Simulated scan of single mutants.
Amino acid sequence: MANKRNLKKAIKAACGDLAGECLIARDLVPGIDRKKMTDIFFDIADLQYVSIDNVSFSFDKTEKSFDSRHEYKKARAKYYKTAYKKLNDDFKKGVDDIIARMNSSLGEQQKAANKARAEK
């Protein structure tokens, strides 16, 4: 489990890279749907904002709620593991959706060129 600062930096870096790819593709790839790419750019910003906002969460029970300190630590560790897994899954789902939308905004000519390049 990463600390919050590093996790937030990683989210910002990933979203920044996606946004950069969007801007480059929008401005340099011929036949791309510029309106879709601009919309995707703003969706990347939303994904970053929501993901960073969801990084901070806390275990809602106290040690007194459990019979022993061991049970408390075990429940707390399980809670954080589940919460970080959900955050990671939600972020990956958002990134996958954005990449699929980026690919769908390419023109047919560019898709054919990409496919030919991948087959080499």
Rank of each mutant, 00 (worst) to 15 (best):
F59H: 08
E108A: 12
V55I: 07
K86Y: 04
I24V: 12
S51M: 08
K73Q: 08
D97G: 05
A75C: 03
G94V: 01
G107S: 12
S51C: 05
G94T: 00
K85E: 15
F66I: 11
D27W: 00
K74Y: 08
A75T: 03
D90T: 06
D60G: 05
A83N: 06
K115I: 04
D67M: 08
I40M: 05
R5C: 02
K78S: 07
R117E: 05
A116L: 05
E119D: 03
I40S: 03
N54R: 10
L87N: 02
M1N: 12
K86I: 03
A116T: 05
K93R: 15
F42S: 15
K78R: 09
L23T: 07
M102D: 00
A112D: 14
K64F: 06
A113T: 06
G107M: 04
Y79T: 13
D97T: 14
K92I: 09
S58P: 00
E71H: 09
I99H: 05
I40D: 01
V55G: 04
G94Q: 03
I24L: 11
M37D: 06
L23W: 00
K81G: 11
I44Y: 06
F57W: 09
D43G: 11
K86H: 04
D53Y: 10
K120N: 08
G20M: 01
F57C: 13
A77K: 02
K111G: 04
D90I: 02
F91V: 08
D43A: 11
V50G: 02
A2M: 15
V29F: 04
T62S: 15
Y49H: 09
S51I: 06
L18Y: 01
L106M: 13
A75Q: 03
M102I: 02
R34Y: 04
R26K: 01
E71Q: 13
K115W: 03
V55T: 09
Y80P: 00
R5K: 13
K86Q: 05
G31Y: 00
G20R: 01
G31C: 00
V95W: 13
G94Y: 03
N3C: 09
R26G: 03
D89N: 13
I44E: 07
L28W: 10
N54T: 03
R117P: 00
K115A: 07
K78D: 10
A14Y: 06
K81C: 10
E108S: 12
K4E: 15
T62D: 13
